[in-house]
Amino acid sequence: MTLLPPTDGLTATTTPAASPTPATRGGPGTAARGRRRWMPRPTVTMAASATVLAVLAIAALFPGLVAPGDPLAIDPSASFQAPSLAHPFGTDESGRDILTRVVHGAGPSLLIGVSATAIGVGLALVFGLLAGLGPRWLDFGTTRLLEVLFAFPGLLFALLFIVVYGPGIVTSTIAVGLSTAPGYARIIRSQVLVARRSPYLEAATVLGRGRAWRITRHLLPNVAATLFVLVTLGIGQSIVWASSLSYLGLGAAPPTAEWGAMLSAGRTYITSFWWMTFFPGLFIVISAVATTLLGRSIQARSRRS
C-alpha cells in the first residue's frame, strides 16, 4: 500500500486551528486539545449563573443546612419585624422568619419550574417527533393541533386548565407544562425535519445503517443538543409562570413556603412592610435570570463554534 502525505489542507489553509504544528501531533498534546474542545473554558456569565444555580440547588435539596429553623413556626410577638441581624429578611404577619421561608420555599418553587418544563418538553418531544418522523398525515394533524393550542395565549390556557381541574400545586404545574408544550413542539419538529433531511443521515443510510440506528445515533443527539438550551431557557420562564399562578391563589396556597404564595400573602402589606414581598420576589427574579443567562450563554457558545 502506498501512502500520500497530507499536503493539501495543511499548505492551503491559513487558519491556525486547521494547521497543527508538529509539536502538537500525537502524545499528550493531542489528548489535551481534544479534551479542551469537549469542555471549553466557561465565560464569566456562565460561571456566575452556574454558581447562583448551585447555591439555589443546595437550598432546595437541603434547606435545613442553610436555614435550620422551621418555616412554619409562628411567633406572634415578633410579627412584622424589619430586616435585622436576628431576622436578615425580616418576619411576616405571624412572626415567621422570611429568610427561613425563602430558603425552604426554594424546593417547591424550583420543583414546580423544573417539573413544569419537564412536562412541557416531554409532551413536546412526543408531538415533535411524531410530526417530524411520522407519515405526512400525522405531521399534518399534529401541526394543526399545535396551531390551535397556539391560538391561546399561554397563561390563559393554564388558567383555563386550573378552572377545570381546581387550584393546587400539582394542577398549576401541569397547567404551566401544558401551555409551554406547543412552543417546544414546534421547535423540535423543525429540528427533526432539518436533521432528517441532512446529508449525514443519508450518508449513514449509504453505510447500511437502519432507521432505528439513524434516529438514535444521529437524529436524537443532534435534536437534544438544541433542546438542552431550550430547557434551560424554559425553566426560568416556568418558575415565573408558576409563581404568578401561586400569586393569583391558583397554585401553592399559604402558609406553604413557596415564593409565589409568599408574594401573594405579602401583597396586602406591601406599602408598610416591603420585605415581605421583596425577598421572595428577588429570589424568583434571581433564579429566572440565572437559568436564562446560563441558557443564553450556552446558546451563544454553540452558535460560535
Binding site: 500500500m1 501512502l3 489542507g9 497543527p20 501531533r25
Partner: peptide, 20 residues
C-alpha cells in the same frame, strides 16, 4: 491510507480544511 495524520482523530471535521 488517505494521508491524514493521527492528530485529526480527536478533531471535528469542520475545523479541517476542505481538502482534509
Amino acid at each position: 491510507m488517505v494521508g491524514l495524520p493521527e492528530s485529526v482523530i480527536a478533531r471535528r471535521p469542520r475545523l479541517l480544511s476542505g481538502g482534509q
